[in-house]
Amino acid sequence: MKPSGLRRSERPMVWLFLFPMTAIYVLMFIFPSLRAFYISLFDWSGFTASMRYVGLGNFRELLGDDYFWSVAFVNTLKILFIGGAIIFAIAFLLSGVLSTNLRGKKIFRAITFFPTVLSPIAVAILWSFIYNDRWGLLNSTLKLLGQERLILTWMAPEHLFGSILAALVWMNTGFYCIILLAALDRIPQQTIESAYLDGAGEMQVFWRIKIPMIKDILATALTLWAINAVKEFGLLFAWAGGVDIPAAGATNLAVKMYVTAFGRRVTVYRMGYATAMGIVMFLLVALLVFLISRAFRSEVFEY
């Protein structure tokens, strides 16, 4: 479609329309993003004017920070890949069922999507009710079913991350499920039916027809997941209960970064160092987005 152009005399209007957005965006988004790279070169407590230039010192320290890599970074990667694999597997399964002629489809769709509109803090509280070892939903249901040997202290350090990951999966699956569902609903029914008539099995139809035909939306969904998974903060931070040194199982890059900068009771206030962590997060997202767009660019499928 050809956009309708403006006449020469109306050109100033373009700037009038664009100015508020561009001004706010440049001043409050682009400028701080660029300034982050500058701040990361300093040792700075934030609330004083004195910034000590340390060059790449923050990054050097970060590289040697074993806890940052072996706990925070690894947990973020686990959320990204293990959590992501589970989320997309369940989302595909649910959207596959939801795309058939199912009775009560709309209600199922609405319930599946519901966790998306809940605040992550509410989700953290909800799951702490589920996991409580004395009266939680999980353990008391296990007791009811006579499966006492499965009862665990779900929020004990050794199980904490897995328990949080389950909550994360529950919270995020609905969103990706509904996106995939919308994509699946766009595939012409004939294409699938004729494939079945040609003798294709369920698996073949899924991998050879459905996946290629929803490729563009799948790429978008994966990109959104990559960004959201790295940013994930509220659920883990609320789980940690606002303490200054959150449990290892509740620490990812975002939590570590926040605590390093703004940890409340123990004053850390290492702004340069925390910003360096923010840059690591940015680079991780950039790398993932690049890889996803690379992987999906080849062979564009035409409807």
């Binding site: 682009i30 993003s33 934030g46 970064m257 925390a274 910003t275």
Partner: peptide, 21 residues
Amino acid sequence: SLVVFGMGVPFQLLLIPLYFS
């Protein structure tokens, strides 16, 4: 492109500079 680029920026990158501004 500049605007779309912003969709891929985790807020943690600009949190501290923006806070002090």
